[in-house]
Nucleic acid binder design. Structure first.
Ligand SMILES: NC(=O)c1ccc[n+]([C@@H]2O[C@H](COP(=O)([O-])OP(=O)(O)OC[C@H]3O[C@@H](n4cnc5c(N)ncnc54)[C@H](O)[C@@H]3O)[C@@H](O)[C@H]2O)c1
Ligand SMILES: NC(=O)c1ccc[n+]([C@@H]2O[C@H](COP(=O)([O-])OP(=O)(O)OC[C@H]3O[C@@H](n4cnc5c(N)ncnc54)[C@H](O)[C@@H]3O)[C@@H](O)[C@H]2O)c1
Lengths: 211, 211
DNA sequence: CCCTACTTGTGAAAACCGTCACAATCTAGA
DNA sequence: TCTAGATTGTGACGGTTTTCACAAGTAGGG
């Protein structure tokens, strides 16, 4: 059980295992690595290896206690507590995310919305006002925002990411199609849909050429 | 130069190189693997290795011809021609994507929109009508749809994916948080934002525990 | 034409990640 | 208590991806 250098692919699979376990809901049951693997797109050995990075919480001959493993995975992924999130950019992407119930139900709580469009500032989304970006750093620091969802145009993204770091955020979910330049102490996850589409075109083009 | 088994990470980087090259715009110039690496988050050796999978199109001592490499990358990624896309699910995600100009400007052309909500069917988005899903398979086959963007609730996603395959699509960009079960001849790319957020929580939690 | 400075393309080495196989461990039941 | 049946945890192995290092090639200047 070493806690160094967990592969990104392992983290993705852990999310997936957690999702499967939440689907069970039956308290008190157990689940084997084989069953867990069948629901993900992976193998029993992979499941065990993934979990072994963090300790050993199965029982040989039996499997894993569903509710226990679920709680451990929540701890490992850090979703055993709520996270305070700010939404930066109240545009189309921002709206879709804001209204997406899965975030809140998993503990990601939007505590502030920001936009620089005077038309939008002052509007309400749900029970949250849209803030101007004038006092951005102070506001997110006061609200103890930990995560930022960055949904502004590419031209503003670097600047707002810098200010978010200035305001104390620890992680950024970035929708702008640029590479953010920020200190390594802050984690960034990029969502780049054009890249995803290009991965599709590539795969299809390859398979056509292959035959 | 082998065209077998290109790593997914290489494909992502190719997209990124193409984006960087498009940023140059200066015709006739050259660029070195070192410069390309600096704009991506990678190394010069990685750039050269990535490109070497597909041939050798640099000049030693000089670097790569910008416009030439750009065209080659477009060919490799399959974006040297338009792609016909259907949007399935005219909800919040669907709307954000439909209005996102970057898709069309890169050759992904939305040719049909589908929804099963009677309120929405018959509405127009831009100059496209929202179709019912009754004649879904026939319609996408007639329109020669190649890619589907699947933005329906998780409960409908498997069914609509199956029907899309039935209608002849070759690739699916899936926003629903489930694992689609479809034949391997059809490529799927999943976009799972909860997983992205959990990757953030994990990284932050780890770094806090580490010190 | 030759020398210098530079950069590619690519085998080889290293690092990383997934798979395999099995000893260790557990439960149940006789 | 002992045996049979099941499943974990993990070291060893193998494949894949990245990094390294350098021979080969190019342009330009003298
Ligand atoms: N729409 C999509 O489907 C989609 C898909 C992938 C990526 N993206 C990316 O996501 C980002 C947002 O896209 P969108 O479609 O929501 O755009 P949008 O124009 O609908 O929304 C952007 C919002 O950000 C606000 N804004 C601009 N500068 C700002 C600043 N400095 N501070 C605060 N707010 C600011 C604007 O007023 C606007 O409300 C873009 O970078 C885009 O490239 C969008
Ligand atoms: N909103 C987000 O930010 C977000 C983020 C990540 C993932 N997702 C996922 O994307 C999907 C869509 O989310 P959304 O927020 O746009 O939901 P939404 O409810 O706004 O839109 C879904 C649309 O699909 C339509 N629909 C339902 N069943 C259908 C069917 N069988 N055929 C055709 N259309 C059908 C509905 O009428 C609705 O218009 C969901 O699976 C959701 O989990 C959403």
């Amino acid at each position: 059980m070493v806690r160094n250098k967990i592969p990104a692919s392992t983290v993705r699979r852990l999310s997936h295992y957690l999702r499967s376990l939440e689907g069970f809901a039956e308290e008190g049951g157990t689940v084997s690595s084989e069953e867990l693997a069948a629901r993900g797109q992976t193998t029993a050995a992979q499941v065990r290896k993934d979990l072994s990075h963090f300790g050993s919480f199965g029982k040989r001959g039996l499997g894993y206690q569903v509710d226990e493993l679920r709680d451990r995975l929540r701890q490992i992924l850090g979703v055993d507590r709520p996270w305070r999130v700010a939404l930066i950019g109240a545009g189309r992407v921002g709206l879709a995310l804001f209204e997406y119930p899965a975030f809140r139900s998993r503990g990601y709580e939007c505590v502030a919305i920001f936009d620089n469009d005077p038309e939008k500032v002052g509007q309400q989304w749900g029970d949250l006002p849209i803030h101007s970006v004038d006092d951005f750093e102070e506001t997110i620091r006061r609200l103890q925002v930990e995560l930022a969802i960055l949904a502004v145009p590419a031209a503003s993204a670097q600047e707002m990411a810098r200010r978010a770091v200035e305001g104390g955020v620890r992680g950024i979910l970035n929708f702008a199609p640029i590479r953010l330049n920020i200190p390594p102490s802050v984690t960034v996850e990029d969502v780049n849909l054009v890249m995803e589409l290009e991965a599709l075109s590539f795969a299809i083009t390859q398979s056509e050429r292959g035959e």
